[in-house]
Design a binder for these strands. Structure first.
Length: 403
RNA sequence: GCGGCCGUAGCUCAAUGGUAGAGCUCCAGAUUGUGGUUCUGGCUGUUGCGGGUUCGAGUCCCGUCGGUCGCCCCA
C-alpha cells in the first residue's frame, strides 16, 4: 500500500537529508538569537477561517473530531504563533524572536515543488516596528540559504513594499475592495502577456507598468537595502515591485527568495504584517516573518550538488570468528557502546569474510576481532582502511578507538 | 476543479497485437580465521484496477485509480 497522495515516506537516506536541512535551519536561527517553539499540528478550524475567510476551508485538511469540534491540520504556522503570542506575550521581552519547523498540510493538487505536506522553517520577529527588524529578518533568510553553500549567484531576494502599493491605490482613489484585483494583476504581470495585464489594470495600467519596469521611490526599501549593504548582503537583494504576495495581511516590506535561474518556485517568502496579531488575537504588536519550505529548497540544493547523502555509519564492528566467544564479544560490544562509540556485531553466525564485508558496508573504521585471546584480556583491532591489525589490551580498547 | 504525458519485478527500463525479459539491488554459494573485485545460482509480476475489441491484449478502445507536468489557487 503506497503513501497517500502528496505525502512522503522518509527512508533513511531521505531522513538524513532532512536532518541536514533542519540542522542548518536551526543553527542559523540560533546564530541570529531566535529561539525555537512549536505548537499543535491540529487546530480549531476557526483559527484559520478567522484569518483567511471561509474560502480557505477548501484547501485545508479538516474534519469533525469525536468531540464534535471542527478541526484542521495546520496549513501554516502564523495563526498558531499569533494565538500563542497573544496568550502569553507579557511573559517575553520584546522583540520576540522565535522560529519553528512545523510540518504543515494543505489539501490541494500536487505539482512540482508542492505536495500536500511539507516542513516549513518559520521565523518571526514580534514587537519591533523599526525597519531594522525587516533588515534583520531578511538577513536571516539570506544567511539561512548561505548556510547551505548557496551564494548570490544562486539566489536573489526580490524586495518589494506592500505599503507603497497601498499608498498608491489610495492616492488614485481606488476603492479598497478593488485592491485585491490590482494585486492579482501585478502578481501575474510577469507570467501573463502584457495586453492581459493592461486589460486587468484598466485606467491604472500605464502608471503601474511604468512602476514595474522602472521602479519607484520607497524610503522603506532604501533603508532596508542600506541596512543589508551594511551587513555585506547587498548583492543578495533586488528591488522588484511585482512581488506583492497573495496574502491580504501584509502591510509593509515584503520579499521572496528565488533561484537565479528561475527554474524553481519561490524558495521562501515573507514580510511585515503589523495588523495580524491585533486582528487574530487582539494584541496590538507589530510583527514580521518568513517561511521557507523544505521541498523547493531540497530540489535546488540537489541540483546544485550541495546536499550530499550523509551516510550514517558506525565506528567499530565486532567480528566473531568462533561462536564460542559470542558472549565475550557481546561484552566487548557493550563496553564500546557505553563509552559512546557507535558499534555493532553480527546477530547470527557468519563467516569471517562476510563479517568484514559487513563492517565495510556499515562504514566502520575499525573491526574488533574477539577470539581466544579474549581469555588473556586481549582483542585484535584492525584498521579497515590500511588493513593493519594489532592486538591490544581490552582495557585500552576504547582509548585506541578514540585516538 | 480543468488539461497534456505516463503506469511492466524492490529500483531503472525492454518486449511488431502472438510463450513477459534484462540490468541493478537483495539473498546464498564458490571462499572451513580476515573485507571492497570476480564468477555462479536463487527470489520477486493478477503488466495499477475494471470493462470492451480480438482466435489472441503489456500493446488497441472506454472507464477508474495513481504518478508527473502545467492551469486555477496560493502558504
Amino acid at each position: 500500500m503506497p503513501s497517500l497522495p502528496g505525502f512522503r515516506d522518509f527512508y533513511p537516506a531521505d531522513c538524513a537529508l532532512r536532518n541536514t536541512v533542519f540542522a542548518a535551519w536551526r543553527s542559523t536561527a540560533q546564530r541570529y538569537g531566535f529561539v525555537e517553539y512549536d505548537g499543535p499540528p491540529l487546530e480549531e478550524l476557526e483559527l484559520y477561517t478567522k484569518k483567511s475567510g471561509e474560502e480557505i476551508v477548501g484547501q485545508l485538511y479538516h474534519f469533525v473530531d469525536k468531540g464534535e469540534r471542527a478541526v484542521a491540520m495546520r496549513s501554516e504556522m502564523t495563526p498558531t504563533l499569533a494565538r500563542m503570542v497573544a496568550a502569553q506575550h507579557r511573559d517575553y521581552k520584546k522583540p520576540i524572536k522565535w522560529f519553528s519547523i512545523p510540518q504543515v498540510f494543505r489539501y490541494e493538487r500536487m505539482q512540482r515543488g508542492r505536495l500536500r505536506e511539507h516542513y516549513q522553517f518559520n521565523c518571526d520577529l514580534i514587537g519591533e516596528a523599526s525597519l531594522e527588524a525587516d533588515v534583520e529578518l531578511i538577513a536571516l533568510c539570506i544567511d539561512t540559504l548561505r548556510a547551505f553553500g548557496l551564494n548570490e549567484k544562486d539566489f536573489v531576494i526580490r524586495l518589494s513594499d506592500r505599503q507603497f502599493w497601498v499608498d498608491f491605490l489610495k492616492s488614485k482613489q481606488v476603492p479598497e475592495e478593488k485592491w485585491y484585483e490590482v494585486f492579482q494583476a501585478i502578481d501575474k504581470s510577469e507570467r501573463q502577456p502584457r495586453e492581459k495585464t493592461t486589460e486587468l489594470l484598466g485606467a491604472l495600467a500605464e502608471e503601474v507598468l511604468n512602476i514595474l519596469e522602472h521602479g519607484a521611490a520607497s524610503e522603506r526599501l532604501d533603508i532596508v537595502e542600506n541596512g543589508l549593504k551594511a551587513r555585506g548582503l547587498g548583492d543578495y537583494v533586488k528591488r522588484d515591485f511585482t512581488v506583492v504576495r497573495g496574502l491580504a495581511y501584509y502591510t509593509g516590506v515584503v520579499f521572496e527568495a528565488f533561484d537565479r535561474s528561475g527554474e524553481f518556485r519561490a524558495i521562501a517568502g515573507g514580510g511585515r504584517y503589523d495588523n495580524l496579531l491585533n486582528n487574530l488575537g487582539g494584541v496590538d504588536l507589530p510583527a514580521l516573518g518568513f517561511g521557507m519550505g523544505d521541498v523547493v529548497l531540497t530540489e535546488l540544493l540537489k541540483q546544485k550538488g550541495l546536499l550530499k547523502p550523509s551516510t550514517a555509519s558506525i565506528q567499530a564492528f565486532v567480528v566473531i570468528p568462533d561462536e564460542a566467544f559470542r558472549a565475550e564479544a557481546a561484552g566487548v560490544l557493550q563496553t564500546l557502546r557505553e563509552a559512546g562509540i557507535a558499534a555493532d556485531m553480527p546477530l547470527s553466525p557468519a563467516k569471517m569474510g562476510k563479517q568484514f564485508q559487513s563492517a565495510e558496508e556499515r562504514g566502520a573504521t575499525h573491526a574488533i576481532v574477539v577470539d581466544a585471546e579474549i581469555k588473556n584480556g586481549k582483542v585484535a583491532v584492525k584498521t579497515l582502511a590500511d588493513r593493519k591489525q594489532d592486538v591490544v589490551e581490552l582495557a585500552s580498547l576504547v582509548a585506541v578507538l578514540r585516538s
